[in-house]
Nucleic acid binder design. Structure first.
Lengths: 343, 343
DNA sequence: CCATACTCCTAAAACGTTTTTGTTATATTA
DNA sequence: TAATATAACAAAAACGTTTTAGGAGTATGG
């Protein structure tokens, strides 16, 4: 039904190869010929059939992106913003994005194999890197190009973008310390994630700088979901050594802490200070607006695609490993503690 | 680098066509032969090269889904949950999902043309249908199968799933009326969206049933984002005829109203009642939990894919047009008004 | 023993594009 | 005028899969 080169050949009287060459801008095509061919192509809304182009070129012009999910439905708005960036970057270069979901655990690697095997995609964007990440090992083995959002260990040469989350969390924690908080809780992320290590370090370093002892009883390991944030914060708020501030590994967790705070009647920003991480739009529009590290998620998405694009087209990649400085945004979810607790 | 039929042919001594037929389960292949071939295929991790398969079959085994965005980054978590459903449904049938973003306005149709032209996808899932939807016209014209989340007008035979949002909003509004509210605001969605019409009708019908006059001054047209929800609610709360309850077109808008309420010191569920629509997980984990219509988003995503799958494979579609009854969930964001206002 | 049926395999074509190589006709140069 | 360069087009191959058509060999039946 759709128009093919063959049809244009029949209509214009030129050969298929001339049609193709004319449309692709080859020089040895007569100007008048090209005009006629272009006109016919426009008339019939010609668009090259991708499957054929892909087979011929050995490329799909598609990249893969898997959204991490917890359970069936829960995911982080962070990934839509990222996906939007990746998608818009891709569209600008006439690439497409194949999206799937990747469950935590065993299924994750399978999900990646599924889109990589059979050459469904030319390359992959990977997020939430793990210490010793099987996906990276696999992609290296099968020679599929990829870029990471986040670092990995023991792989010195892989391309990535990461936020310096050690210093990010450190800044936020110091901010709370400067405000006078001395008992600062921390809801962190699963241990296997690389950024957990950095964020934990940032938290500890800030405490150390202010001579405060690390107190494991007010540090909880969450899973980056709002629901778990709420549950763990509820626990924290029930403890006798209730913290006056809570640092969270991401915004979604922080919003869970908001719920818990509301529930027990704590006023956010005075009774309890809360900080997030990521800078999703929900953080900005929460009340009070959430103190957080503003990651330029959309722009990072575009940049990730552009890095991958260069890898795929053998263009030189000047900055293969990019570590972005944290941009803290101090909003009203953090303030001085209601009554200064002992120091 | 990856293994191809040719390689397996060389290794086993059979022809390419026999290899293919053996792996595809054709009956006229000797059992022992098949065993050997399967073994070799497994040994080399053979997976058919999709571009070739696609070209040969005239199908991509890919469906398209475009996420509506407002501005650069803002989108609704609703669409991740939906995408997760679509993606999982697709993966179960060895289909993939090509995802892009579609801006509001002129660019939208272009975004659809982009993935449909050139046969990038076999079919499309469309959301947020408009009255007189150009996308539907286009897809019908180029004979690309599609399914809708939402109805359209003047196209009696197109396949869709929709929630009965007239009755959904009606139920919520009636719930508020029963609680004693008489001044009920409404933050609705852009007029061109089909579901706006239904939701508006539901609101009006409920009022009428209780003999309350429609008051345009407490009805605002939003854009389904949290930010606009917050802004419009702030307006509402500043008015002298401040409503005691606000019905919202979706959960995200309702969460914006939460922010506005917090900001002016209104207690949600008593000073001000708020209802949403969709049942995203943020609604459940907000405080207080949001009264809303629980759309089984993930399941709808799966079902949408399965409908499209049947269309693509010429299987009979028993229920071509599905209208799901609304499932209201009454939570603590709605309660009786603080002091009964005149009735 | 011939004809027929059955089993198991292979050759070849096709999908539509891009690119390499070649060909023809015309123009240029010696 | 003959040799050579140039311009403009076309033929053909290739990408890897699936499927159609058919062929060789063996078994079955009369």
């Amino acid at each position: 039904m759709p128009t093919r080169l063959k049809d244009l050949a029949k209509e214009t009287g030129y050969s298929v190869s001339t049609i193709s060459r004319a449309l692709l801008g080859y020089k040895d095509v007569n100007a008048e010929t090209r005009r006629r061919i272009v006109k016919a192509a426009q008339k019939h809304d010609y668009y090259p059939y991708q499957s054929a182009r892909q087979l011929r070129a050995g490329k799909t012009y598609i990249i893969g992106f898997l959204i991490p999910t917890y359970g069936l439905r829960f995911s982080d708005p962070f990934f839509i913003e990222l996906l939007t960036g990746i998608g818009d970057g891709a569209a600008a270069k006439n690439y497409d994005v194949l999206v799937g979901t990747s469950p935590e655990g065993e299924g994750e690697l399978e999900a990646y194999k599924r889109i990589v095997a059979g050459g469904r995609v030319d390359g992959v964007v990977i997020t939430r890197t793990k210490e010793d990440d099987k996906r990276v090992d696999y992609l290296l083995k099968v020679h599929t190009p990829f870029v990471l959002l986040g670092r990995v260990f023991n792989k010195p040469n892989v391309p990535y973008i990461d936020i310096d989350s050690k210093n990010g969390i450190k800044l936020l924690t110091e901010h709370l310390l400067k405000l006078g908080h001395r008992k600062i809780g921390f809801i962190t992320s699963p241990e296997e994630l690389v950024f957990s290590r950095y964020r934990n370090e940032g938290y500890r370093e800030a405490l150390k700088k202010y001579g405060i002892k690390y107190d494991a009883s007010i540090v909880k390991i969450g899973d980056l979901t709002q629901e778990t944030g709420r549950k763990l914060a509820t626990e924290l708020f029930r403890q006798k050594n209730r913290p006056s501030a809570v640092v969270c590994a991401n915004d979604l967790t922080a919003l869970g802490v908001y719920s818990a705070a509301h529930q027990v009647g704590l006023e956010i920003g005075s009774d309890i200070s809360i900080s997030g991480y990521d800078g999703i739009s929900l953080a900005e529009n929460a009340h009070p607006p959430l103190t957080t590290i503003q990651v330029p998620i959309y722009e990072v998405g575009i940049k990730l695609f552009n890095m991958l694009y260069k890898l795929l087209n053998n263009e030189p990649l000047e900055n293969k490993q990019i570590l972005l400085p944290p941009q803290p945004i101090y909003r009203n979810s953090t303030g001085p503690p209601r009554k200064a607790d002992g120091h």
